[in-house]
């Protein structure tokens, strides 16, 4: 499994990436949507985990653009907010139940990623 994590909180995303690597999940992380698009064009990711609220391009917009570049990639959204999250737009890109609430439970994240890879 090859995963891309995108979140503007460097401290959070780099630590999560390190923890995933301990579990033998190959992970890249990046703090900007624009950089994420460059990485997606270069690498063959299975899953992109995107923060919703980021400077510049938002997680939802980024999800749409990633989907255009890689139609087969699985997309998960992370949000610290409940009410503001656009579930309809998020589900249209990532599918039903394609979101996680912060703080992220790593076992929950891995469970969701495994489900996506197995096509559950």
């Amino acid at each position: 499994m090859y995963v891309l994590l995108v979140d503007d909180e460097k401290e959070l995303i780099s630590t999560l990436a390190e923890r995933l690597s301990f579990r033998n999940i190959k992970t890249d992380w990046i703090t900007s949507g624009e950089e994420a698009l460059r990485l997606v064009q270069k690498n063959d990711y299975d899953i992109a985990v995107l923060d919703i609220k980021m400077p510049g391009i938002s997680g939802i917009e980024l999800g749409e653009k990633i989907r255009e570049i890689c139609p087969d990639i699985h997309i998960l959204f992370c949000t610290g907010q409940g009410l503001d999250f656009n579930y309809k737009a998020g589900s249209a890109i990532g599918g039903e139940d394609s979101y996680l609430f912060k703080p992220i439970d790593i076992n929950n994240l891995i469970g969701k990623m495994n489900e996506l890879m197995e096509g559950v």
């Binding site: 959070l12 999560l16 923890r19 609220k53 912060k102 703080p103």
Partner: peptide, 16 residues
């Protein structure tokens, strides 16, 4: 939102 992010960072570091 800011505090939630901070809790997220603490959570990841405690997990690490």
């Amino acid at each position: 939102h800011e505090l939630n992010n901070t809790i997220g960072i603490i959570n990841e570091n405690a997990g690490l």
